[in-house]
C-alpha cells in the first residue's frame, strides 16, 4: 500500500496560514492605532458602573433650593437634548422662580446623557462648572447655545469660551477639567440612577418621588400636578396663572415631548 502523501497535506494549508497571519497582523495594527492615547483628551463617554440600591441612593445630583423644602423635584436631563433645551428655556425658570425661590421646592439636576455627539462631555463639563459653584450659570448658557456647540468638532473649546463669560469662573481650570476624564464616574452613576428609576428619555421629572408621565407641556400644567402631589406645600397659596397665549412663531412655552434614548 502506498504511503499517504503527508507533505502535500501540510503544504496545502500554508497559503491559508499566510493569509490568516496577514489578517492577524493587519487587525492588530488597526487596533493599535485605535488604542493610541491622545494627550488632553476630553472624555466623552461613560464607564460601566454597577451600584447597589444603597449606593444608588447616595448618587449626587446638583441641587438648588432649601434642603428642607417640602417638595423635591428631580430632573434627569441631557444638555444636548433639544426637548431639555426647550424645558430649560420655558418651564424651568418658572419652577425656580415660583417654587424654588419661594422655598417650596428643592430642584435637583441629574445627568442622563442619551448618546448625542457631546452628551457625555457636556454632562462632565456641567460637573466641572459645579466644582467652582457655577453649575447653574453654565447650565443656562449651555442650554441656550445648544445649537452652537452641538455640531462643533471641539465642543470642549466652546464650553471653555462660555466659562470665560461667567463672572468669577476660572476658565483655565474649567477647561483643564473638561479636557480630562474627571467626573466620568459621577456622570455614569447618575445615568445608572436614572436607568434604575425607569428614565427612558429626557427631560424626565420626579416630584417627591413620583414620575411625571407624560411631562407637562406648560408651567401651569406642571404646577397643577405638583399641587396634587404635595398640596400641603401650597396651603393658602393661589393657583398658578394660566399660560400666556403663545407668540406667533414660538412654541408657546410648551415642551413638546421628550428625547428618547438613542
Amino acid at each position: 500500500m502506498p504511503r499517504p502523501a503527508q507533505a502535500p497535506r501540510r503544504s496545502s494549508l500554508t497559503p491559508f496560514y499566510i493569509i490568516l497571519g496577514l489578517v492577524l497582523v493587519a487587525g492588530l495594527g488597526l487596533l493599535a492605532t485605535r488604542l493610541k492615547p491622545k494627550a488632553g483628551e476630553a472624555v466623552n463617554r461613560g464607564v460601566p458602573v454597577t451600584l447597589t440600591p444603597e449606593q444608588l441612593q447616595r448618587v449626587q445630583g446638583i441641587s438648588i433650593g432649601r434642603a428642607d423644602a417640602p417638595i423635591t423635584i428631580y430632573e434627569f436631563a441631557d444638555f444636548q437634548c433639544p426637548h431639555c433645551g426647550q424645558f430649560a428655556a420655558f418651564i424651568e425658570p418658572l419652577i425656580r422662580q415660583n417654587l424654588v425661590e419661594t422655598g417650596k421646592a428643592r430642584y435637583v439636576f441629574y445627568d442622563f446623557p442619551l448618546g448625542f455627539k457631546w452628551s457625555f462631555l457636556a454632562a462632565r463639563a456641567g460637573r466641572c462648572a459645579n466644582e467652582q459653584g457655577k453649575f447653574w450659570d453654565f447650565h443656562g448658557i449651555v442650554f441656550a447655545r445648544q445649537q452652537q456647540w452641538a455640531f462643533d468638532p471641539d465642543a470642549a473649546a466652546q464650553f471653555a469660551e462660555y466659562a470665560k463669560t461667567i463672572p468669577g469662573m476660572d476658565a483655565g481650570k474649567f477647561e483643564q477639567c473638561v479636557r480630562s476624564d474627571k467626573y466620568q464616574r459621577e456622570v455614569s452613576e447618575s445615568q445608572q440612577l436614572g436607568q434604575s428609576l425607569g428614565v427612558g428619555g429626557t427631560p424626565t421629572l420626579f416630584v417627591n418621588g413620583r414620575k411625571l408621565d407624560p411631562l407637562p407641556e406648560t408651567y401651569s400644567a406642571f404646577e397643577t400636578q405638583v399641587r396634587t402631589i404635595a398640596p400641603a406645600a401650597f396651603a393658602g397659596a393661589p393657583a398658578a396663572p394660566a399660560a400666556a397665549p403663545p407668540a406667533p412663531g414660538d412654541t408657546g412655552g410648551k415642551v413638546t415631548g421628550q428625547s428618547a434614548t438613542p
Binding site: 487596533l31 485605535r34 483628551e41 463617554r45
Partner: peptide, 14 residues
C-alpha cells in the same frame, strides 16, 4: 467585536 468591546468596557474612549 474586540474593537467595539474595548469601547463598551471603557478601555478606549471613542
Amino acid at each position: 467585536a474586540a474593537y467595539l468591546s474595548m469601547y463598551k468596557l471603557g478601555i478606549i474612549n471613542g
